[in-house]
Write a protein that binds this DNA or RNA. Structure first.
Lengths: 247, 247
DNA sequence: ACCTCTAAAAATGTAGATATTTTTGAATAA
DNA sequence: TTATTCAAAAATATCTACATTTTTAGAGGT
């Protein structure tokens, strides 16, 4: 079992903003554990393939076995955890095949959604994209490198969210969100390389400019092509960073 | 609460063929309950909006509250059940908006996948499609109308599965399967109308023939367009059959 | 009609019992 | 010596029964 220096332990959970819960997110134990564990897996507190011991999880998240199982089986549905009956749970492995598959699927799906957004987006959609693009281009006045990573990632995500939100299909956006979650561990590898390289950042800035241009000109095919390439571009970098699986 | 005449109760579960479980599906209680309840919801044993009482579920599926919760929260992830913290679970509502959204998303996704399959499918893929198309066209020697519905649906699904399986992307196929599950309650309404109408069946047969033709000719754009239309066509019929929501 | 209170119902959580798998180590065979 | 088998022990996962908390619904009062 690898080193674990995960997030905080909770008393009754800070009521964060809106989340995936249907109504007001008055979370129960299972939901709390689900969120924490998901974050811990994405942030690498547990490594791919690590066994998730019930006894450890129970004490670490200060929770009973019932709700903990509930959280774990949610993460199985999210493909971040694998389960074998009677033998417990492990963190899902990462592999080059999965990386390729996820990014291929994401690129096609995001291009599809982008195309729909170009067809269906209204003026608010245009305005939102411009606003987010502007905020993303102005990620400078920050203190620590840590904060830089945080802020750039957050605004980059918002930028993409603004684009796809015009597609008008909640279901397609759900699918997209699911793939994004599955990609998150791979993305983290790429982020650290990209955000701290002026060259890489400049390249991304260029791609974003072209993309915004195509979107506002309602050039559907060009926007789709640019988006497709934009999503796929990190693959090469990530392949080089992928932890060699030896377990 | 509506009438319930669900499936059988289980001793230790018949070890069915391969399922979504990673390894050999030696199911635990939660998994068993998940499968049964999912079937019961899809087959209409519980109506949209019905409250799913813990006490009832426990006795009906002969299971404890813990595993039952686990099954329920899986179904929440599948969007077949909704949950409100401290207030329990209900069968997800059906609506015209959701119908439209699901079918729109399915049509776009299935067209996307079909396009990829045309590009990536090999000879086995072609052969498989031909085989399944043939089996589907020969749904005649059956006894009861009930069996007719069963057999036609099953072969129709196999036909589509054969087509999309050529796309080479497990993740896209997962997304597709998820949407198909969500569409299932709506599809059931359509099925009963279609399978027992010679006219409707003939129409479908025609669409399938054209589709197979485009696929084997590797005419990507035509195949995508046909698939898109094929998926969307049931919408009009289903809208007329949708239960009026009065709860 | 509109509160307030209270008892019943229901959801959620905990702890301990049970069943399964994995490990350990001694005995046996190569 | 080294490998293999087997059985008991330990570790672990899973389930059930019970306890706690929260919501609901109705009675009574204003």
């Amino acid at each position: 079992m690898s080193a674990i220096k995960s997030s905080q332990t909770i008393g009754q959970a800070t009521s964060s903003g809106s989340d995936k819960d249907a109504e007001h997110s008055k979370a129960n134990q299972a939901t709390i554990a689900y969120r924490l564990l998901k974050q811990d897996i994405i942030n690498g507190a547990y490594q791919p393939g690590d066994k998730l011991l019930m006894s450890h999880l129970k004490s670490h998240y200060e929770i009973g076995a019932g709700p903990m199982r509930e959280a774990l089986s949610q993460l199985v549905a999210d493909r971040l955890v694998t389960a074998i009956s009677q033998r417990g749970f492990r963190v899902a492995e990462m592999s080059e095949e999965e990386l390729t598959d996820i990014y291929d699927a994401r690129a096609h799906l995001e291009a599809l959604i982008t195309g729909l957004a170009v067809e269906r987006g209204d003026e608010d959609w245009e305005a939102d994209i411009l606003g987010e693009a502007h905020k993303l281009s102005r990620v400078n006045e920050v203190n620590s490198p840590e904060e830089m990573l945080q802020v750039w990632d957050s605004r980059h995500k918002s930028f993409h969210r603004a684009i796809v939100s015009g597609c008008g299909s909640p279901k397609l956006l759900e699918m997209r969100a699911s793939l994004l979650d599955q990609a998150e561990r791979y993305r983290q590898l790429w982020l650290k390389q990209t955000v701290f390289s002026q060259l890489a950042l400049e390249e991304k800035r260029q791609e974003h400019t072209e993309l915004v241009d195509a979107l506002l000109n309602r050039d559907k095919e060009k926007a789709k092509a640019l988006m497709y390439a934009h999503i796929l571009s990190p693959i090469a970098i990530i392949k080089g960073l992928l932890p060699t699986q030896s377990r």
